[in-house]
């Protein structure tokens, strides 16, 4: 019985509380116009940045990123911001709100466009 409980707890412990599937779309040519993306996810409840990452890209858009969390506190309202760079130069930036659902894979799309002011 103890082993069954431990197994159950172990499985529960490994279970992500939620997951985000980010899709970045942009009309830019890679890598001539954009060669890197910065992703930042902010938890709106306390304005805490719960994810930051940078990615060099060499293939055409769209690009995708999966993000998981074991923290139930992160389940809820988030803002995803994506910054497109060419080297160290900011090309454009866009953000999108999303509500991360518990035990679900939540889709969010961020569309970068040339109209967005840096």
């Amino acid at each position: 019985m103890t082993r069954a409980w431990l197994a159950a707890l172990a499985l529960c412990a490994c279970n992500p509380a939620g997951a985000l599937w980010l899709r970045v779309e942009a009309p830019f040519a890679v890598p001539t116009q954009v060669d890197a993306l910065d992703v930042q996810v902010t938890r709106l409840s306390d304005k805490k940045a719960v994810h930051q990452s940078s990615h060099a890209i060499a293939t055409a858009f769209p690009h995708t990123l999966s993000l998981t969390t074991d923290d139930l506190a992160t389940v809820g309202a988030l803002e995803v911001q994506v910054t497109a760079r060419k080297g160290q130069t900011l090309v454009t930036r866009a953000s999108a709100p999303v509500t991360l659902m518990r035990d679900e894979l939540t889709d969010v799309a961020v569309r970068l466009c040339e109209c967005a002011a840096p």
Partner: peptide, 22 residues
């Protein structure tokens, strides 16, 4: 295990890879 399978199996790796939300 079902939950893990249900969610974990639906979280693919993106072209930018995978990451975690703290």
């Amino acid at each position: 295990a079902g939950t893990v399978y249900a969610l974990g199996s639906r979280v693919p790796k993106g072209t930018l890879g995978t990451g975690t939300l703290q």
